[in-house]
Design a protein around this nucleic acid. Structure first.
Lengths: 197, 197
DNA sequence: GAAAAAAAATGAACTAGTTTAAGACTTTTA
DNA sequence: TAAAAGTCTTAAACTAGTTCATTTTTTTTC
C-alpha cells in the first residue's frame, strides 16, 4: 500500500509506540480529516468549543491565550510531527480560552471527538498509544512548569534554544517573548546580551 | 469481599475511569506494595533511580528539586487520593533529580516498574485508566506552566488557595513559597497583604 | 516543660523585568 | 513599488520580587 507523505508522517509517529496492521492503518486514516490553514489564519479562537485534536504535517502554528490586558501568552509552538489542540475543551466540550493561529501556511490532520472515541472501540491499542504520548508530554510539562517558576528569563531562553533549535529560527522574537513570558523589549535585550557572550 | 480502607480508596480512584471485576481488583491489589514514611523521612532522593509510582492513602508529601544554590523548588504536594512519583526516572531508569519527603506521617501504595508493565498485559483496561489519568494531569500542568509564566506571585497564591483549600492549611509558608516560586520573605508579605484585603 | 531548632515577620538596600516612548528596519499589501 | 503595518532596538523611569540582617513566634526534641 502506498501512502501520501502526510499519512506516512503520522503513521511513523504512531509506530514509535504501537504496531498497527495494514487494515488498522487504513481504518485509522479513514477517521482523520485533512485541514489547511493559511499563514495568519486561525485554526480556532477563544470561545469556540474545540472540534478536533490536531497533528501537524506541514507548517507552524502558535497556541496562546490573551490576558485581561490583551497581552498574548504563548503556550506552545507546533511544527511538523507535533500534536496540538486544546485538550481541556476537546474533552469537556467547554468553550476554549485558546487561540491557535498559523505562523506559516500549514497542513494538519484532525481527529474529531466522535472519531477519537470511536478509535478506542475499534482499535483498543490506541489507548496504549495515547497513554504513552500523554505520559511523555506530562514529563515535559512538569519540567516546564517548574522551570517557568524557578529559572530567570535568560535561562529559559537559553533552554528553549537548546531544546528547539529548529523552531527558534521560524518564529518572531515577539512570539518567543510571549512564550518565555516576558515583554518583547526585554526579549530583545536578552538576545543581544546572549549573542554578545 | 471486604477491603481495607486504603484499598477502597485506590479502587474508588480507579473506578472513576474504568470498571474492574472482583477478580481484576484482587489481581491489581496483589501487584501493590504498602509503604509507610514517617514525617521528615525521604521516600526518595535525587540520584536514586525511582522504583515505584505511588498512590497516597494517608498523609502529605512534597516533591522537589534543589537548584545549584541549594534552594528547593517544590513541584507538587501530594495528599490522600493523589498519585505521585518521578515518572521520568520511573520510565527511563535514569537517576532522578527529585526528592520526595513526608511532611506528615504518611502511608502509600506503590507499584513497581515490573508490576506496572505486567499490569498492562494482565488487565489491558489499565491502558485506558492511565491514558485518562495522564490526560487530565496534562491539562492541569499545561495550565500551571502558563500561569507560572504569566501570573504574578500574588495571583498564583490566590489561585493555589482557591484550587487546594485543604492543602494550604497543612503545609508551611516556606514550602508554599517553594511551590509558588518566590522567597519565604516575599511569601510572608503577600499573605499578610492578601489577608488584609 | 525547658532548651534548641525551625518558621514567620519586618525592613532597608538591591536587581530582574516592565512601561512608555521614539526611531530604524523589515515585511506585507494594494 | 510605495505606503502601511508590524517588528526590533535603545534608553530612562518604574515595580515586583530578592537579599541580607534582626527579632518574634511556633514547633520539635529530649
Amino acid at each position: 500500500m502506498i501512502y501520501k507523505e502526510s499519512h506516512i508522517l503520522i503513521l511513523n509517529n504512531i509506530a514509535r509506540f504501537i504496531d498497527l496492521t495494514e487494515l488498522e492503518k487504513q481504518k485509522y486514516l479513514s477517521l482523520l480529516t485533512e485541514i489547511k490553514v493559511k499563514k495568519k489564519a486561525y485554526l480556532m479562537q477563544a470561545g469556540d468549543v474545540t472540534k478536533y485534536e490536531y497533528f501537524i504535517t506541514k507548517g507552524c502554528l502558535k497556541v496562546y491565550t490573551l490576558d485581561e490586558d490583551g497581552v498574548p501568552h504563548i503556550s506552545m509552538f507546533a511544527v511538523e510531527d507535533y500534536w496540538t489542540g486544546d485538550m481541556a475543551s476537546f474533552m469537556t466540550k467547554q468553550p476554549s480560552r485558546y487561540f491557535i493561529r498559523a505562523t506559516e501556511d500549514s497542513e494538519l490532520l484532525g481527529i474529531s471527538r466522535a472519531n477519537y472515541n470511536l478509535l478506542f472501540q475499534e482499535i483498543p491499542k490506541f489507548e496504549r498509544f495515547y497513554r504513552i504520548l500523554y505520559q511523555r508530554s506530562l514529563i515535559s510539562y512538569i519540567r516546564r512548569s517548574n522551570h517557568g517558576i524557578s529559572l530567570t528569563a535568560e535561562e529559559r531562553y537559553i533552554e528553549f534554544k537548546k531544546k528547539y533549535p529548529k523552531i527558534v529560527n521560524r518564529i518572531t522574537q515577539k512570539d518567543l517573548a510571549g512564550y518565555i513570558g516576558i515583554t518583547p523589549e526585554f526579549m530583545s535585550k536578552i538576545i543581544s546580551k546572549v549573542n554578545r557572550m
